[in-house]
């Protein structure tokens, strides 16, 4: 970095195209992506698929959240609303309407996006902490709606959601069949987010994050870009929620509770904000802790809190952020 600025004036210009990038992935990112795909293929033979599927749903949720905070600089503190609404709508669609799982999940994503459009439109006009508080307040409204609305069954939630047949053809009752479907869904969502970041739209988003008044002065209606990003993030969160309800078989108030919004912040922060792989690793860490430390009961929350404090104090860039800094690559 520093060498470029001190280059003597006579040196010829570097080629304007970063030749080492492949589909927008740097070399390090491409290696990490291959490792991740390999892990997706190998892990179900060693670990409990049910656990892995849940992990992937939360990983996708965290990636969607990271799209907003890491690349647009918007801290939404109400992402549980989109995740939870996606979860309920997909559950209802699969159980009551008898939709195939992929349609149910898509419908969950659509409901997240619609909710995101309404809430984003209100929240986007405010900055910083006010933005976070408005998103939280709106998400609380969704929580109380879900507590009262008849189709969510209040405290009971929607239970015994059928996994159904993929496209009406492939039976997903076997864990491994469902696993491949969820793994594919996660990978598609992950790649979509990567594409959003590395699109002409993503360039404008980055510019807005870096210097919003300057982006405005170049003629960009920054609020519109932020709103589109918000809707995309909420939509992907809805898909993650829908997938989760199909995987676990229940949709409950936990999915829309504000602690879920806090958990996704923790996942992204732990993994590394604004990194491509950080939220995935962060979600993996948190979900693993919740699963394997379950015997400790309420202590899990305490341990999580300690890890959070440690993370903020010792490695602020998150796990992936710190690794990237050590290896001097972008991950």
């Amino acid at each position: 970095m520093a060498s470029a600025t001190t280059a003597p004036p006579g040196t010829p210009a570097l080629p304007p195209v970063a030749a080492q990038s492949f589909l927008g992935f740097t070399r390090a990112q491409a290696i990490a992506l291959l490792l991740m795909i390999a892990a997706l293929i190998v892990c179900p033979f060693f670990l409990y698929p049910q656990f892995l599927m849940k992990l992937l749903c939360f990983a996708l949720f965290a990636c969607a959240f990271n799209l907003l905070i890491g690349y647009v600089g918007l801290l939404s503190f109400g992402h549980a609303a989109y995740f939870g609404m996606g979860s309920y709508v997909a559950a209802h669609a699969a159980k009551v309407w008898g939709l195939t799982p992929e349609l149910a999940i898509l419908l969950g994503g659509a409901s997240g996006a619609v909710l995101g459009l309404a809430f984003g439109w209100i929240a986007i006009r405010r900055q910083g902490i006010y933005f976070a508080m408005i998103t939280l307040a709106l998400a609380q409204m969704v929580y109380f709606f879900c507590l009262q609305a008849p189709f969510t069954h209040g405290e009971d939630g929607i239970q015994a959601i059928p996994r159904g047949h993929l496209l009406g053809l492939i039976d997903l009752r076997a864990d491994m069949s469902l696993y491949w479907f969820i793994a594919g869904l996660f990978l598609a969502g992950f790649l979509l987010i990567h594409r959003i970041i590395h699109s002409p739209f993503g360039q404008v988003l980055t510019a807005i994050r870096e210097n919003e008044p300057r982006a405005t002065s170049l003629g960009y209606r920054t609020d519109d870009y932020k709103l589109v990003a918000f809707v995309l993030s909420a939509g992907i969160a809805g898909i993650a929620g829908g997938a989760k309800s199909i995987v676990v078989g229940i949709a409950t108030l936990t999915d829309v509770h504000w602690t879920m919004s806090g958990e996704v912040v923790l996942m992204s922060l732990l993994g590394g904000l604004g990194t491509l792989f950080g939220p995935v690793l962060g979600a993996a860490t948190i979900v693993s802790m919740q699963t394997y430390l379950a015997p400790f009961g309420a202590w899990v929350t305490v341990i999580q809190g300690c890890i959070f404090v440690l993370c903020v104090l010792a490695f602020r860039a998150g796990i992936v952020g710190e690794i990237g800094r050590m290896l001097r690559v972008r991950l």
């Binding site: 589909l23 927008g24 594409r195 959003i196 590395h198 699109s199 002409p200 739209f201 993503g202 360039q203 404008v204 510019a207 982006a215 170049l218 003629g219 960009y220 209606r221 519109d224 870009y225 589109v228 995309l232």
Partner: peptide, 19 residues
């Protein structure tokens, strides 16, 4: 390039590669 990109109109195409 961010400024030159203006002439495409609104760059809302999030599905296209930045290539």
């Amino acid at each position: 390039r961010i400024a030159l990109q203006r002439e495409r109109g609104g760059s809302y195409d999030f599905w296209r590669s930045d290539a």
